[in-house]
Design a protein around this nucleic acid. Structure first.
Length: 919
RNA sequence: GGGUGCUUAGCUCAGCUGGUAGAGCGUCGCCCUUACAAGGCGAAUGUCGCAGGUUCGAUCCCUGCAGCACCCACCA
């Protein structure tokens, strides 16, 4: 093995081998286990959130694969309608061309080309991260098979009466010029104004005053409402008003919709441009007057003076005209929520159009029940409340989009406006027996991306065909995703999956937190704090990092600040850490918290961990030969001890995986590896291995234990750190007598039932405490390691002496002592510093090497601590109700503690006196 | 307006069904001891947000408050 661990040399090579050998495909006949990947945008790149999510899914996948399950991690990408279309459109614009010049067909060809070009990026990145997806089953939402699934789903829902076409108000994005669903609208509080405007009575005698945040919509007003109980307007129901600037007359009506407490109590009604007003209008039979074009300019329904003006321009003009007419009563500042399109950032308009909708109520009911009765379980559990909250108030889902990139809606219109839904024009003509001469035109629109995403678990497995994969892997086992798409995606998969198959799409939904930067900020291009996971893996020079963060900004003026903060945070760029270190970091970050702060310092730490493991393996390989020599074996206590500790660690890791506590799994395996295996066990084994005088049977046992423990440890670590474990395992396994092409297909470790050994653990605890006691004296009294110590044992029991004898070689080496001898009965103890180990006192004679003051200080410090503990324990035991009510076990334990403290205190006092007398 | 989280060592976070507060990073000493200086050995550091309550006992359970996030919602 190379002396240093260098991830770059091993990772790519190993991944290719796995892939070439087909190790990612489901195998065996164990119970099925399946995860479908949340499909990233095909033209996108992986960010930290993806890398985190992929790490979790891969860890689960590898864990289950090793546990013997027939495991499929289903990969794929999403066509991401709006996002992708916007990117390509921007490319076009940069070339000085527009979408419409190109035409629909040519544009789509162009998007496909772009998809082919950039579509491999994600896959390349996933390979670097070690993702063990079954690439042979890679899918794209616009693949022919998946497109067929989408079409089939649409047709069936239509036939089931769950899809309809309707003219109503939708959220209209005037920049993208498409309808969007409620979920794609982001409402933010912003500062605005409240305009108070007078609407004169038609008879010229007086006026009412309305308050509005959107004066330009007055051009579409069809009524003004006041509350029926509002005394101020008693008897005015039905009075006609002269709508300013328009020459139109509209009625004043009494309607409970108006809130007497707001503004003047009068509200203008614009049913074509406001969701509330629309509802009132429907109820009251008011007309709809649309005054806006698709790009939110004033249309020809409005007075000539305003036609063609942008809505915000029109607002200014109208306010000015009202003021000039003396109708503007006042303007006051007002906080209001502004709805913006989540992609374009444009203010969304409620706009009257024909769109396709999914009638969700019937779909939602079984989807709610599935979570209520536990067929689907959220982890952490409380996300079900979020799910319920939304599902119980769900509204019909607008699924048509006025885009070109996506699944075209399979509907055709006759000249009379009749709607025919089917697989193709021919099919439609056939089913409905339409004359060949009857002209049919297909709907121009495409479906919401989330419609096809909602089918993902079934469509990737082959639905609507009844494939082998579908029957094997559906329902899938667990969905791993972020809480931000519970509504967009999770809920829709449940509804659609259940409707089409009668079964839930997944049994568990593991909701992970959001990766933020080290300051807790969301990572975003415009904040300039994004990290490319592969830059952490491979490292990146400072200048390259700065360039990466500052190019392609939507707001180029942010570049200098971003460059500055980047240089400050990473003065030397980012060093290479390797994939395993990054993955281990993600695993240890995967707590139940919803915000996860990513700190590069942790990756550094886990890279060191990789190095530690690497070197431990080197030691094991250097200390053993292949194959293990035959012969009788005599395991030492520490051999049995490490097996006992390994068993406990295995149990902890398995439990952690079962609970999706990757952080606890990582922690358990980290602590075992570093603190138990490396810090203690390897050192324990050295005297046996490196001495020519040791018992050959003990040596054989040590070598076996070394190899077997490491081999199991590698398997235990593999789901989280696949590369380094594979690399080391390839060398270690043969010596441990394990055969196999790859660690990937080895069984996940199981704790042998008889491995746990409390007796041995307590004996080794004694050994370790002995060593620690001497080391502490050395450290605190500043005795150089080169100074050999000979210690005396005072008040040693038979057991102490036996233990010392059994472990003398280890203790001498690790505590750095030349030897230890028991104090004879009646022999006066030497002047010495002492470490306490139960009743046993380990005396380090002070002759000439101990600083009296330092030792006194040391004793005093310890005494303070013990006194504190003692006081606490005795207070507890002095409390009658504690003794009475606490479980006997607890009380007994407390009594023991008290005794121990008392004894220790006495010993400390005695020691203190003796040392002080040296002065 | 409704809902959900969070507050523990300088920083980032664990702490399972209430029973002696932990880790990593950082800090401070001493060591290049032949697996590893990406290391070893040792050390320091906490009124567990605040105030009540339940309990023999509360970081943990309950109530209230404060601060910080986030989600949902049509108030002109």
């Amino acid at each position: 093995m190379d002396k240093t661990y260098s991830p770059r040399d091993i990772e790519e090579r190993i991944y290719h081998r796995w892939e070439d050998e087909g190790l990612f495909a489901p195998a065996g006949d164990g119970p099925p286990f399946c995860i479908v990947i949340p499909p990233p945008n095909v033209t996108g790149t992986l960010h930290m959130g993806h890398a985190f999510q992929d790490t979790i899914m891969d860890a689960l996948t590898r864990y289950h694969r090793m546990a013997g399950d027939r495991t499929l991690w289903q990969p794929g990408t999403d066509h991401a309608g709006i996002a992708t279309q916007m990117v390509v459109e921007r490319q076009l614009n940069a070339e000085g061309r527009t979408l419409h010049e190109l035409g629909r067909e040519a544009f789509n060809e162009r998007v496909w080309r772009w998809k082919e070009e950039s579509g491999g990026t994600i896959a390349r990145q996933m390979r670097r991260l070690g993702a063990s997806v079954d690439w042979s089953r890679d899918r794209f939402t616009m693949d022919p098979g998946l497109s067929r699934a989408v079409q089939h789903a649409f047709i069936r829902l239509y036939e089931d009466g769950l899809i309809y076409r309707g003219k109503r108000l939708v959220n209209w994005d005037p920049v993208l010029k498409t309808a969007v669903s409620d979920l794609e609208v982001q409402s933010e509080e912003e500062n605005g104004w409240l305009w108070h405007i007078r609407y004169p009575f038609a008879n010229g005698k007086g006026h009412v005053t309305i308050a509005t945040t959107r004066p330009e919509t007055m051009l579409g007003d069809v009524a003004v409402a006041f509350h029926p109980d509002d005394e101020r307007y008693r008897g005015l129901d039905g009075t006609m008003l002269a709508l300013p600037l328009t020459g139109r007359e509209i009625p004043l009506i009494a309607d409970a919709f108006a809130d007497p407490a707001f503004g003047t109590g009068c509200v203008k009604l614009t049913p074509a441009h406001d969701f509330n007003d629309y509802e009132v209008g429907q109820r009251r039979g008011l007309p709809l007057l649309n005054i806006l074009t698709a790009d939110a300019k004033i249309n020809d329904e409005a007075p000539a003076a305003y036609r063609g003006l942008d809505r915000f321009e029109a607002r200014k003009r109208i306010v000015a005209d009202l003021e000039a007419a003396g109708l503007l009563e006042k303007v006051e500042p007002h906080r209001l929520t502004i709805p913006r399109g989540d992609r374009s950032g444009a203010v969304v308009e409620p706009w009257l159009t024909d769109q396709w909708y999914v009638r969700v109520e019937k779909l939602a009911a079984p989807a709610i029940r599935a979570v209520e009765d536990g067929r689907i379980r959220f982890v952490p559990e409380n996300w079900d409340r979020t799910y319920f909250e939304w599902m119980r108030n769900i509204k019909d889902w607008c699924i048509s989009r006025q885009l070109w990139w996506g699944h075209r809606i399979p509907a055709w219109y006759g000249p009379d406006g009749a709607i025919y839904v089917g697989e193709s024009e021919d099919a439609v003509r056939g089913t409905h027996q339409l004359a060949a001469s009857l002209p049919l035109t297909q709907d121009e629109d495409v479906l919401d991306t989330w419609f096809s995403s909602g089918l993902w678990p079934i469509s990737t497995l082959g639905w609507p065909e009844r494939t082998q994969e579908l029957s094997t892997f559906y329902p899938t086992s667990v969905l791993v995703t972020g809480f931000d798409i519970i509504f967009f995606w999770v809920a829709r998969m449940v509804m659609l999956g259940m409707h089409f198959t009668g079964e839930v799409p997944f049994r568990q939904v593991y909701i992970h937190g959001l990766i933020r930067d080290h300051e807790g900020q969301k990572m975003s291009k415009s904040k300039g704090n994004v990290l490319d996971p592969l830059d952490i893996v491979d490292g990146i020079e400072l200048e390259a990092l700065v360039a990466k963060r500052t190019t392609g900004l939507m707001q180029p003026q942010l570049a200098p600040a971003i460059a500055r903060s980047t240089r400050k945070q990473f003065p030397d760029g980012i060093p290479a850490h390797g994939t395993d270190a990054l993955r281990f970091t993600f695993a240890s970050l995967a707590t139940l918290s919803r915000d996860l702060r990513f700190d590069l310092g942790r990756v550094d730490g886990y890279k060191n961990f990789c190095n530690k493991l690497w070197n431990a393996a080197r030691f094991v390989l250097m200390s053993t030969e292949s194959p293990l020599p035959a012969g009788p074996e005599a395991p030492a206590a520490h051999d049995r001890w490490i097996r006992s500790r390994l068993a406990a660690t295995i149990a902890a890791v398995r439990e952690a995986f079962a609970q999706y506590r990757f952080d606890l799994a990582a922690q358990a395996v980290y602590e075992f590896t570093w603190y138990e295996f490396c810090d203690w066990y390897l050192e324990f084994s050295k005297p046996v291995l490196q001495s020519d005088e040791s018992d050959p049977a003990a040596r054989r046992a040590a070598r076996r234990t070394l190899l077997e423990t490491l081999e199991a440890l590698l398997r235990l670590l593999h789901p989280i750190m696949p590369f380094i474990t594979e690399e080391i395992w390839g060398r270690v396994a043969p010596r441990a007598g394990v055969t196999g092409a790859s660690i990937m297909r080895q069984p996940f470790p199981e704790a042998p039932a008889d491995a746990a050994d409390p007796v041995i653990e307590s004996e080794m605890r004694w050994v370790m405490d002995f060593i620690l006691g001497v080391r502490r004296i050395r450290g605190e009294l500043d005795i150089a390691p080169s100074v050999p110590l000979t210690v005396r044992l005072q008040a040693a029991s038979t057991q102490d002496l036996e233990r010392y004898a059994r472990h003398e070689a280890v203790i001498r080496r690790m505590a750095g002592i030349a030897g230890a001898t028991a104090l004879g009965a009646g022999e006066a103890p030497p002047q010495a510093a002492a470490a306490l180990l139960g009743d046993l006192r380990i005396l380090v004679p002070m002759a000439g090497l101990i600083d009296v003051d330092a030792e006194l200080a040391r004793l005093g410090k310890r005494r303070g601590k013990v006194e504190q503990e003692l006081a606490r324990a005795s207070a507890k035991l002095g409390n009658a109700s504690f003794v009475q009510n606490a479980p006997a076990e607890v009380v007994m334990q407390e009594r023991e503690r008290l005794e121990v403290f008392k004894r220790e205190l006495a010993q400390l006092a005695e020691q203190h006196e003796r040392v002080a007398s040296l002065r």
